[in-house]
Design a protein around this nucleic acid. Structure first.
Lengths: 146, 146
DNA sequence: GCTCCAAGTGAGAGTCATTCTCAGTTACGC
DNA sequence: GCGTAACTGAGAATGACTCTCACTTGGAGC
């Protein structure tokens, strides 16, 4: 129909590696970067659909899978059977601490100690999910309680 | 119908805490103790149903939930969207290393280091799933490969 | 031994997150 | 502009797990 050169933010290409830059993926990547803390695929879809109605849930799942594979997003746990994702702060291997009160996500250095493993066990991958309450929320709940 | 005093193994009572000892739960606890390594609820059901046809999947799920709550079983990860369980070796807090080749499960001491967490973050709970290959399987695959 | 009753059970429908399918659309290299 | 493969939307399919409800049964009290 038109020959407009697509002008989606160049940054939008990054989360997906070398794949094509589509309008839907650019919108999903932008929405993900604007989410505060951990989110489910469905909440991300809600947010995307607010500004771009018509983008399907399947497309969001596909984009999340692509971004996770590219290391831009990480699975940081699960809530009520739904996977929780968050934008990764660094590309180095790390884990995440999720505040159950406000949903904030903080990076946590990996503390997997090889000596704790059974002798000869070769780790291929591991997952650590940490849940709790961040300092801000703890202070706030302390003020209310006091 | 009869007044036979139920003679289910006394040990079968333990995995469920103080609850009643029923034929189905005794069978499920026994089957769980005979499983090698990690297993899904469905595989446990298959095994139970082999010797006790008629025991429903819902009953197995309920028994697994009760045993997990009682600390006799632990969720050691997930495979293809299904939860993996294993019999807990000790009652102390620990994690599990799962061999992806043979399914064997080995206890791993918790190495969560408080210093690695963001300052002020209060951990309520955490989950660590470690996947890899146990020494036996590594040796075996090495022999084949060599 | 008998009775009572709450815990436990079986069957299967329901729920929900996630994946799959497929025809149509579109970004992008040429 | 064209060709094509990657991507998309819609919704059906899948699969793990939970819920409901009428029925059964273990175990305590008498």
């Amino acid at each position: 129909m038109s020959a407009h050169p697509p002008d989606f933010s160049a940054a939008a290409r990054l989360p997906y590696g070398t794949r094509r830059v589509s309008r839907a993926r650019a919108a999903i990547a932008e929405a993900a970067s604007e989410m505060r803390g951990a989110f489910t695929a469905e909440r991300l879809h809600e947010r995307v659909a607010r500004e771009h109605p018509g983008i399907g849930l399947a497309t969001v799942y596909r984009a999340v899978a692509a971004m996770t594979e590219a290391g831009y997003l990480a699975r940081v746990g699960a809530r009520d059977g739904a996977a929780l994702y968050a934008v990764c702060a660094s590309e180095e291997h790390h884990h995440h601490a999720v505040c159950e009160s406000c949903g904030a996500v903080a990076p946590v250095a990996c503390t997997l100690v090889r000596a704790a493993l059974p002798p000869g066990f070769a780790v291929t991958h591991h997952e650590l999910a940490i849940y709790g309450m961040c300092a801000d929320c703890a202070r706030r709940s302390g003020e209310v309680g006091a």
